[in-house]
Computed example of a mutant assay.
Amino acid sequence: MTDTTAPRPRRKAFSVRTMPGFSSIAIVCFLALYAPIVVIVVYSFNSGNSIALWEGLSLKWYATAWQNDAVQEATIRSVIIAAFASVISTVVATMAALGTTHGGDFRGRTVIYLLINQPLMVPEIVTAVALLIFFSMIRIATGYSGLAYLIAAHAAFCVPFAYLPIRARLEGMDTMLELAAADLYATPWRAFRRVTLPLMAPGIVAGAMLAFVISLDDVIITEFVKAAGQDTLPTYMLGQLRRAITPEVNAISTILLAITVILLTLFFILTRKRSPKA
């Protein structure tokens, strides 16, 4: 008679990392993703005019880009648009996160999540065409063709990127702290200003940085919405690629890459610990 009380051996948990060939496929994927970026960075220090032939180490193209008036104008314009767009999108995303996370459960909450995150799911070119048509109607009606259209377009596109870290921060917050402030006779605004907002601050800063990076790097929406003479740095680089290509483009790309990596590293640090300390 067999002993049925003996404990059965536990099944090993499935892990994709133990599958044959996983490491090799991962290495190939990483090489395909990052090898072109490494090439751009290396050839940005090329002393020659060729983007494919190494002729020596030099910072010549960084100096050329620094002294290029068109690059300076496009950079300043990109920073202005990204700064305004990140502030607007972060404010909207903060209010949306408070309404959907701290407003209690209500009918239509899932639909609101879907609407806020729609720009992440819809192809960017569809959003760009829709914004082009919408802003063209306003241009015809008002005659205005300034940077406000680009700022509004970037802000609309960046809202879900700012919303996600803010919402994640709010979901990890201890609501008992707000209740304790209310028990101590704090008004709703005072409780928000002294308790909720400081606890939300890392998520808000992370959302603003992510929105800034997305706006700074955007090409498709900018290319559709911008008017003549409103090139940002990415669209300026795209225009240069249609003409004679020099390592100056590599130098600009490397600088953009460095800015993006720094901001995304700060974003990771701020969002690594989602649960605020009591």
Rank of each mutant, 00 (worst) to 15 (best):
T2E: 08
R8M: 08
P9N: 05
R11I: 11
A13Q: 02
F14R: 06
C29H: 01
L31C: 15
A32I: 09
L33I: 14
I37Y: 15
I40D: 05
V41I: 14
F45E: 02
N46D: 09
N46T: 03
N49Q: 14
N49M: 09
L53D: 10
G56A: 05
L57T: 12
S58T: 00
S58K: 09
T64L: 09
A65G: 14
W66M: 00
I76T: 12
R77P: 07
R77G: 01
I81E: 04
A83K: 07
F84K: 04
F84N: 00
A85D: 05
V91Y: 05
V92P: 01
A93N: 00
A96N: 06
H102L: 10
G103E: 05
G104Y: 12
R109V: 13
Q118K: 07
P119I: 07
L120Y: 09
V129S: 06
V129I: 14
A130W: 00
L131W: 08
I133Y: 05
S136G: 15
T142D: 11
S145M: 03
S145T: 13
A148T: 13
Y149K: 02
Y149S: 12
L150F: 06
I151H: 06
A155H: 05
F157L: 03
A162W: 08
Y163W: 01
L164P: 07
R167I: 08
E171D: 02
G172C: 03
M173Y: 04
M176I: 03
A181C: 14
A182D: 09
D183M: 10
P188C: 11
R190E: 13
F192M: 00
F192G: 08
R193Q: 12
A208N: 04
L210Y: 01
A211N: 05
F212E: 09
S215C: 08
I221N: 01
E223C: 01
D231I: 09
M237S: 06
M237W: 03
L238C: 01
L238W: 12
R242E: 10
R242A: 12
R243Y: 02
I245L: 14
E248S: 03
E248F: 07
N250K: 13
N250V: 12
S253V: 06
L256R: 12
L257Y: 12
L257Q: 09
T260D: 02
I262G: 03
L264W: 07
L266T: 08
F268C: 07
R272Y: 13
R274M: 11
K277C: 01
A278C: 11
